[in-house]
Amino acid sequence: MIRRTKAVVALLGLTATIALVASSTGSASHDDFRMAFVTDIGSLQDKSFNQLGNEGRIRVGKQIGISTRVYVTNKAEDRLPNLLAAASAGYDLVVANGFFHAEHLDTVAPRFPRQKFVGIDVTKFLLPSGPSNYTGIVFSEHEGGYLVGYLAALTAKRTGGKQVISAVGANAVPAIVKYISGYIQGAKKANPKIKVIANYANDPTFSDQAKCKKVALRQIAQGSQAVFQVAGGCGLGALSAAKEKKVWGIGVDADQSYLGAHMLTSATKKVDLAVVIMTKRAHLDRLQGGVDFLFNVKNGGIGFGKVSPKVNKGDLAKANALKRQIAKGQIKIKPTIKF
C-alpha cells in the first residue's frame, strides 16, 4: 500500500507542468488525431460525472480541432464492447470514464499497443497486466468531501436544532467511499458532536432517482439538515428530497448550484479538466504511460462550487481558509474511514 501511495503522490508536481503543456495548441504528432470518450452507466445527462467528462471531450475537440466521439454505456454489459469498438475504430486516444472499466481496460489496452488509453478513477494498479500504453487518473475526493462537510456542519451549528447532516451514496465504489469519508471528517472538524448519517441507495445503474430520494427522505426524517448526494444521476433524487423538505442539498462532481436555492454548495471534481489535459498531452505525443496522475485541491482538480448567499460570510471564510490549509498539506485527511 505504501509503495502504491508513493507512486501516485510522486506525480503531484507534474500537474502544473501538465496545465502549461495543455494550454498549448502546438503541432501534433499527426494531423488526423482522434479521441473517443466511453461513458459509464448512469446517463450522459447525469449532471455530474458522465456529463462533465463529455463536456471535456467537446471542449478539447473545439480547442485543438480534432475529431472526437462519445460511446454511451447504457448498461454494464456495454463497457467492454464500447472499449473494443473505440479501439477497433482506430481512435488514437480512448478515455474510459469510471472505476468499473478497470477489468476491461486491462483486456483491451494490451491488444492495441499503438493506441493510448486513459481511465478516469482507474488507478494503474487495477490493471494487473501493467500495459505501458495506459494512464490512470485519480482524484482526492476525500478533500472535496471534507470541505463541504465542514461547511455543512458550520451551517447546521449556526442554525441550531438537531445537529445532524447526511450523505447518500449510490454504491460503495472507491470514489464514493472517499467522498463520504472526507465529508464525515470535515463535519467533525467543524463540530465534533455532530451526527453524520451515511447510507447507500444500492443503485447499480447510478440513475434510479427514486432510490436515492427514498434514502434521503429517511435521513431527513432523522433530523438531517443537509443532504450530500454522492450518486450521480441517482443523487438528483436525494437533492429533490432536500428541496421538498426545505433542507440543504449538496451536489457532487459538477457545480449543481443551478438546481435551486436549497443548494448549499457542491463538492467539485474536475473530470472535464482531466479529459482536456490528457487529450492535449496525447495530441502532442507527450502522454506518459504506466503512471497515475493525481488531481487534488492543491492543483485545482478538487474543490467546492458556488456557495449559497444565505451562508454566513464568516463560515465561508473559514471554509476557504481550510481549503488553503489542505492545499499546503497542513491538514491530513484519511482517504477512507469506517462508517
Rank of each mutant, 00 (worst) to 15 (best):
S166Q: 02
D32T: 12
D315K: 05
A210C: 00
K6C: 12
K6P: 00
Q288E: 12
D203S: 05
V138F: 05
Y134L: 07
A96F: 13
I2H: 04
A156E: 14
A241E: 13
G314F: 06
T205L: 12
K189P: 00
A327P: 07
V311D: 04
R324Q: 14
H283V: 01
P113D: 10
A198Y: 03
L236D: 04
T159R: 15
A190Q: 03
A261S: 14
T25G: 15
N171L: 14
G260K: 12
Q288S: 12
V311P: 14
K47A: 11
S24C: 10
A28Y: 06
G186H: 08
E77P: 01
D253Y: 07
Q256M: 11
L105Q: 04
Q288L: 12
S43H: 10
T265Y: 02
Q256S: 15
K310N: 07
P174W: 03
A109Q: 04
T73M: 11
V307A: 07
T205S: 15
N74S: 15
G233D: 04
L105T: 06
H104I: 00
L20I: 13
L84A: 05
I194V: 10
N191F: 02
T135G: 10
L264W: 08
P110R: 11
N199P: 00
A242V: 05
T268Q: 10
N50M: 15
N191E: 11
N171P: 00
A156Y: 05
I250Q: 06
K211L: 15
T73W: 04
I333N: 08
L239Q: 09
G301N: 03
Q63R: 15
N320W: 07
K338L: 06
A10T: 04
I194P: 07
V21C: 02
D285Y: 07
G90A: 12
I120K: 02
V196Y: 03
L83N: 08
F99L: 14
D31V: 11
V9T: 12
Q219V: 01
S257C: 01
G136E: 02
G65H: 05
V108M: 04
L154Y: 06
G303R: 08
V311H: 11
L236Q: 14
A210Q: 12
K214C: 00
V72I: 15
L217V: 12
R57V: 12
L154F: 03
S257V: 09
A231N: 06
H142I: 02
L264A: 11
F125D: 14
G90E: 07
V177R: 02
D208E: 10
A319W: 02
S23I: 00
A10R: 14
V21S: 08
Q229R: 05
G290L: 14
N74Y: 13
R324K: 13
T107H: 06
P113C: 10
K269V: 07
V252R: 00
Y179V: 14
G145F: 12
A274L: 11
D315C: 13
V196A: 08
L93R: 02
D46S: 03
N97I: 13
A152P: 03
E141P: 00
A153C: 01
Q115H: 08
T73L: 04
Q45T: 07
G130F: 13
V38I: 09
Q225H: 13
N312C: 05
S129Y: 01
K245L: 10
I184C: 01
V168R: 08
V297A: 09
K270M: 11
A187Y: 10
E77R: 03
C212K: 01
N74A: 09
